[in-house]
Design a protein around this nucleic acid. Sequence first.
DNA 1: CGTTTCTTTGAGAGGGGTCAACATTCGTGG
DNA 2: CCACGAATGTTGACCCCTCTCAAAGAAACG
Lengths: 229, 229
Amino acid sequence: MLTQSLTTSTVASRVSPLPYPALDQFGAVTGHAGLIATEFSYKKDEEIYGEDEPAEYVYQVISGAVRSYKLLSDGRRQIGAFHLPGDVFGLESGASHRLAAEAIIDTTVRLVKRRSLEQAAGIDVKVARNLWTMTAGDLRHAEDHMLLLGRKTAMERVATFLLEMDRRLAVAGMMALPMCRRDIGDYLGLTLETVSRALSQLHAQGVLGFSGARQIVLRNRQRLHNMDA
Amino acid sequence: MLTQSLTTSTVASRVSPLPYPALDQFGAVTGHAGLIATEFSYKKDEEIYGEDEPAEYVYQVISGAVRSYKLLSDGRRQIGAFHLPGDVFGLESGASHRLAAEAIIDTTVRLVKRRSLEQAAGIDVKVARNLWTMTAGDLRHAEDHMLLLGRKTAMERVATFLLEMDRRLAVAGMMALPMCRRDIGDYLGLTLETVSRALSQLHAQGVLGFSGARQIVLRNRQRLHNMDA
DNA sequence: CGTTTCTTTGAGAGGGGTCAACATTCGTGG
DNA sequence: CCACGAATGTTGACCCCTCTCAAAGAAACG
């Protein structure tokens, strides 16, 4: 990794315009500490870091999308989270990454050295608090996702997924999913066929509209909320 | 809650003898800050706090066992974690508890006010770091559990559970499970019958021995490790 | 020692997985 | 801008793992 086009810049608080600047948690950390941030780009399906690899950097998506996942020895995959523009990922309290990360589509990230964040946290209590808060946010998502994976039906999982993506990346009532059906399945603990069937059923019921398999408009969010149990 | 026998004491670092004093993370926090810790007891199946309830206290199990869980509207339950003696639970970065907590059996906990921990973290960077590390530990467990819930078979889940409990509460090669089959099922995303059948099968294969349904001896940990994929 | 709760086991059903074929979309180069 | 090929998505048929429902057995408790 780290063998591509590389731009270095001293970061004030926010270098690049992000879709949701109001929620720029990364800037909240780097801003206080005057850290060096670097931009970096990955091509579709390129690995950003592997599972159990030393956690040298912390990342923020500038554009594109990232999947974090774990694998079983026979190749079964569980995606723990999708990271969209503005999201911070790869933040670890320990020495190594617990999940691998790959670019879903061509993606640009900003990154800072973990060591410098740790150092800043040792000096500035506000930075330390921000790191804790970000990890706690990841934990909240994981707890919600355990409920989905352990106890929801296929239709409920897909409904939950659609509402999550609608919230996170809908523009003008429409969302452009960056990930394929297999990624969605591996996120929801389903097969790609089951995801496809659920989406078709929702389409037939008029709950959503397609313009291409990955361009979706939700036409009845209330029905989806009811389905998500 | 908080309507039972109540003992207050000023905590040095460790008040009560814990089974695994080497891993006393709670003491690492309270020790530095000279916080007031209180002991409190709950009866079997008593609620400690509810989902979305204000997070006023942080807890450590002294004796007994606790389950943390989420419910769907129709009563389906996902247990996110079991808390055993020495474990800290109920630690939140935000204002409220994301999961409910109940005593599995009669349980005694030590508790400190969240506010005083926050305050200590604002003064002492080491305390802040400890809070972050504890939340990161919970996140690691949740990430592993998502893989289990999303991608493992029933037998793999039970094998993983047995190895986890063996690691956490085995004494002299034997473990005394505090929780019933339904709790195990709700932790593993299975029904209690499926858990029972998997345990019976492992028993028939000689992988484990019973002395009462909840007293289990692992006779072949390697086989379990192979099963857990 | 009786009662209640928990666990085991069986039989049958169903939701989601698997395998396969076809359709659509997208990227690429003509 | 279109044509082609590859990748992605949809749909169908069938199967199997786990769930559901039921009953008997074992353990815990007063």
